[in-house]
Simulated scan of single mutants.
Amino acid sequence: MFHRGRAITFLEMMNINRSTIKQQLNKSEFQSINKILIGELRALDMVINEFSKLFEIQEHEVLELSGKK
């Protein structure tokens, strides 16, 4: 059985991971692995997009769930 709430929560967690990686790109202590972080960010973007399409999740659904927490 498909639980939409769980899928949205998982997508929210992936977006948090994406934000963390973006923050690391701007910090000097992570410059030595900058190319790796960019690769991870691109891969995560791809997964987020595919996951959203597969489960037909709109961005506003994730924002609504975030607002309820």
Rank of each mutant, 00 (worst) to 15 (best):
M1C: 14
M1G: 15
F2H: 08
F2I: 04
H3Q: 13
H3Y: 14
G5H: 09
G5E: 13
R6I: 10
A7F: 03
A7N: 05
I8W: 00
I8H: 00
I8E: 00
I8Y: 00
I8G: 00
F10V: 06
F10C: 04
F10L: 10
L11Q: 02
L11T: 02
L11Y: 01
L11F: 05
L11M: 07
M13Q: 07
M13H: 06
M14A: 01
M14L: 14
N15M: 12
N15K: 13
N17K: 11
N17R: 11
N17C: 04
N17A: 11
R18P: 02
R18V: 00
S19D: 09
S19H: 08
S19Q: 08
T20Y: 05
T20E: 06
I21A: 03
L25T: 14
L25K: 01
N26I: 04
N26P: 03
K27N: 04
K27A: 05
K27Y: 05
S28D: 15
S28G: 13
Q31K: 15
S32T: 15
S32K: 15
I33T: 12
I33L: 04
N34G: 10
L37E: 02
L37T: 09
I38M: 07
I38S: 03
I38W: 03
G39Q: 14
G39L: 12
G39I: 12
E40M: 12
E40G: 06
E40A: 07
L41P: 11
V47Y: 13
V47R: 02
I48Q: 08
I48S: 06
I48K: 10
N49A: 06
N49R: 15
F51P: 00
F51W: 12
K53A: 04
K53G: 00
K53I: 00
L54E: 07
L54F: 14
F55N: 09
F55Q: 05
E56Y: 09
I57N: 01
Q58D: 12
E59G: 00
E59H: 11
E59Q: 13
E59W: 07
H60F: 09
H60V: 08
H60M: 03
V62N: 07
V62G: 07
L63I: 13
E64L: 10
L65S: 14
G67D: 08
K68W: 09
K69L: 15
